[in-house]
């Protein structure tokens, strides 16, 4: 999957946990949680959704690596490489 294909999936998952936000407006280096005002509970639900979508298991110590769109995409690509 390319970055342009991944983004809509991420936006959809974010929209799932926080229906009244507009993830499309996120800039690459915006902090996802603070920009969309997602609390720790909803962020955990987002990670659950990510894991289900991409069939991975994100350990808690990696939460810090997926704070922005930019780092989240990098994290997903890195995970994909490992599984291939």
């Amino acid at each position: 999957m390319t970055e342009e294909e991944l983004k809509p999936v991420i936006f959809r998952l974010l929209k799932g946990v926080a229906p009244d936000t507009e993830p499309e407006t996120l800039k690459p280096d915006d902090n996802i949680r603070t920009t969309l005002e997602i609390d720790s509970f909803d962020y955990l639900q987002f990670i659950v959704a990510l894991d289900e979508q991409f069939g991975m298991d994100t350990p808690e110590e990696d939460y810090g690596k997926i704070q922005t769109l930019h780092t989240l995409l990098a994290y997903l690509f890195q995970k994909a490489k490992k599984t291939v």
Binding site: L44, D51, D57, T58, P59, E60, E61
Partner: peptide
Amino acid sequence: LAEANKQRSVKQRLLPV
């Protein structure tokens, strides 16, 4: 919490609350 969460699937992880 971090230790407890290592053994849990993401769905069962604990939050400080």
